[in-house]
């Protein structure tokens, strides 16, 4: 997430070191501009925390009852305490393992099936009807089935995560394959390339932008579902810990759990986003044109 901004500031600054006064000047203004934007963003976040602190310490009851809500200071203290415990890291690790396993399985299966049903009419006819019927069911509604079918809770939770991420990935892949220009495929075929060559050299790289759209959405949904599944069944994990804190009315711990969920989810989505940008560098860049126009 932060890297494009970093690139924007470093990009012009790097040649500036080599010489040219004009370049140095634009490099400086761009860096200053970048700093200002970061200052605004941080100030916005700080303002929200400040309002929260004020509402809770003043015991405000303005329709909503802020007097019972833990203050940011209390939450921070609880967060500091939890950082010193082993269990906090175990929970994080457990949730990460679950989501990465489920998501990785969903990515492989979703891309494979998406390509298959888009490229083969027969496969589409056989595989799509059951998929289309299962797709509208929210993954979290599969929890009873998961508990029934899978021998361990662990497998059930991974399955829920998989089910959540699978559909957006498969659907995006299918659309991306269908929207692929036939010209590239024709070109590879006239070089003597067979199906495998077309798949490897045209279909997979060509659909990457669309596939990454699906992976981003899939990661978001998978994260929601892994936390929800952990709240229902599970003995570890950030979701479980958060729900457990609620049952013993430990609100500062609930908020620590919520913040951890938020940060981890953001890191997961940002990783996918960053990876997607790295792998689709060849796309005509929109931001270049916008920047050029702005100056």
């Amino acid at each position: 997430m932060s890297t494009p901004a970093l690139d924007a500031t470093l990009g012009p600054a790097a040649p500036a070191v080599a010489g040219a006064d004009a370049v140095t000047a634009t490099g400086r203004t761009r860096t200053a501009d970048g700093l200002r934007r970061w200052a605004v963003r941080s100030a916005s976040l700080a303002a929200v925390v400040a309002v929260w602190q004020w509402l809770t310490t003043a015991d405000a009851r303005v329709g909503l009852r802020f007097d019972r809500l833990p203050s940011p200071a209390e939450v921070a203290a609880e967060f500091g305490r939890q950082l010193g415990t082993r269990i906090y890291y175990l929970d994080l690790a457990q949730s990460m393992i679950r989501i990465l396993t489920g998501f990785a399985l969903a990515a492989v299966a979703g891309i494979a099936l998406g390509v298959l049903v888009a490229r083969s009419r027969w496969a589409g006819d056989v595989l799509l009807p059951p998929v289309e019927v299962v797709r509208p069911i929210p993954a979290i509604a599969l929890v009873p089935i998961a508990i029934l079918v899978f021998p361990t809770d662990e497998q059930g939770i991974v399955f829920i995560t998989f089910a959540a991420a699978f559909f957006p990935i498969m659907v995006s892949t299918r659309h991306a394959v269908r929207a692929l220009p036939t010209l590239w495929e024709d070109a590879v075929r006239t070089m003597g390339g067979g199906r495998a060559h077309v798949l490897w050299n045209v279909v997979l790289p060509g659909t990457l932008p669309g596939v990454f759209g699906g992976l981003s959405v899939g990661m978001g949904v998978a994260w929601i579902c892994v936390i929800s599944a952990e709240m229902i069944s599970g003995e570890f994990g950030v979701g479980y810990r958060t729900w457990h804190a609620y049952t013993v009315v430990d609100y500062p711990a609930v908020l620590v759990g919520m913040a951890s969920i938020g940060v981890l989810g953001w890191v997961a989505s940002a990783t996918i986003e960053l990876l997607g940008r790295r792998l689709t560098r060849w796309l005509p860049r929109v931001d270049e044109g916008v920047e050029g126009g702005a100056r």
């Binding site: 590239w184 070109a187 006239t190 050299n201 060509g206 689709t280 060849w282």
Partner: peptide
């Protein structure tokens, strides 16, 4: 039998 197309037949990611 190689073919040269009118435009944009290069694979843009290569």
């Amino acid at each position: 039998r190689a073919m040269v197309f009118q435009d944009d037949a290069l694979l843009p990611w290569r």
